[in-house]
């Protein structure tokens, strides 16, 4: 506990408590639509944190992160549909497969000293490769998609992750803040300091005796496992899976927007980014609909503009600016600039 809360300014803890409290009572206040928006925001905050662990902390840019989402989603869904295995068990299998995939990519890349751009491209290549494989994988529906049985949504069956939106809401709320706790703990552990050393200067890290291969592998594997868990959630929430959607590159991009906008390498960046971006995107969709404009791509265009502005003018993201204003940046910031 000391590792997680030690040294955090009171003001920050107060804000965090307020935020969690309001999110916990949210289902009793807001309507079903708003709840679904918060739910998906929390999902992006969760997977954004998982990605941030690898890019923000350990400095390894993955642009094919949806690979792990897809693997977690398909594995747990297939085990459930074909064998009736509860997703609470299936998620471990899904995470294991994602970790294996991450280990394969990592070992290929890091062993041969593939870094930076090449690594990013390798992650894309693996995700696309898997997408095409799944498009021809009949056991999980191939191109036609894979569907989970939709039963009544009134009763909640947590053991099989079947139930209404409120149950899913609390599941992702828990995951999101559990991830926050795990990240905070990791950052303050020896591992976290090794990661940041590798991020800042890999050669220097190696020179002082850090086994960079090993710690980069650990980063990829933890990130893959966390992301796969998000995949299990999204599979059972949406009840349908398509290879192009599960493994498509646009998904990978969607996944990294929140942490980039909120602030890579910061603890709160991904959460803040998700809470900025998703409601804005949803608002834009509503606005377009009310004006009777039906054009595909407007939301993405808007995301593109935001991404461009952020990376051009505030490449560190929004969180560092805010935390400075609030005076809670002393030990929250990940970057040592």
């Amino acid at each position: 506990m000391e590792r997680i809360f030690g040294g955090v300014p009171k003001r920050a803890l107060g804000l965090l408590g307020l935020m969690i409290a309001s999110l916990i009572i949210a289902p009793a206040i807001v309507n079903a639509y708003v709840l679904s928006v918060i739910l998906i925001t929390l999902y992006f905050a969760y997977v954004g944190q998982a990605w941030n662990l690898m890019m923000g902390y350990a400095g390894q840019l993955s642009l094919g992160h949806t690979l792990y989402v897809g693997l977690g989603a398909y594995t747990s869904a297939a085990l459930f549909v074909h064998f009736g295995i509860s997703p609470l068990i299936g998620l471990f299998v899904g995470m294991a497969i994602a970790v294996a995939a991450g280990a394969l990519i990592g070992s290929m890349a890091f062993r041969f000293g593939i870094g930076g751009v090449y690594f990013a491209l390798l992650t894309i290549a693996f995700a696309e490769f898997t997408r095409i494989l799944f498009e021809h994988f009949d056991w999980v529906g191939a191109m036609g998609g894979f569907f989970l049985p939709v039963e009544n949504r009134d009763s909640s069956d947590f053991l099989n992750l079947r139930g209404g939106p409120v149950m899913f809401y609390y599941v992702i709320l828990f995951l999101c803040f559990a991830a926050l706790g795990v990240n905070q703990w990791l950052l303050r552990s020896r591992l976290g300091y090794y990661w940041m050393a590798i991020r800042e200067d890999q050669e220097a890290a190696q020179a002082v005796g850090i086994n960079t291969f090993r710690y980069k592998m650990i980063a990829v594997m933890i990130s893959a496992a966390m992301t796969a868990l998000g995949g299990v959630f999204i599979a059972f929430y949406y009840n349908n899976l398509f290879p192009a959607d599960a493994f498509g590159m646009h998904r990978s991009i969607e996944l990294i927007l929140a942490p980039i906008i909120g602030g890579m390498g910061t603890l709160f960046g991904p959460i803040l980014g998700a809470f900025i971006l998703t409601p804005l995107g949803e608002g834009l969709t509503i606005l377009m609909e009310s004006m009777g404009v039906k054009a595909a791509g407007v939301k993405q265009l808007f995301y593109g503009v935001i991404l461009l502005v952020i990376i051009r003018f505030v490449p560190g993201g929004v969180w560092p600016l805010i935390s400075k204003k609030l005076g809670i940046d002393k030990r929250m910031k990940g970057k040592s600039e």
Partner: peptide, 18 residues
């Protein structure tokens, strides 16, 4: 490097959706 990559990614998103 990653900032360059993200910049051009943003350009790519703008172009393709445009």
């Amino acid at each position: 490097e990653h900032e360059q990559f993200i910049l051009l990614l943003a350009v790519a998103i703008l172009l393709v959706n445009g």
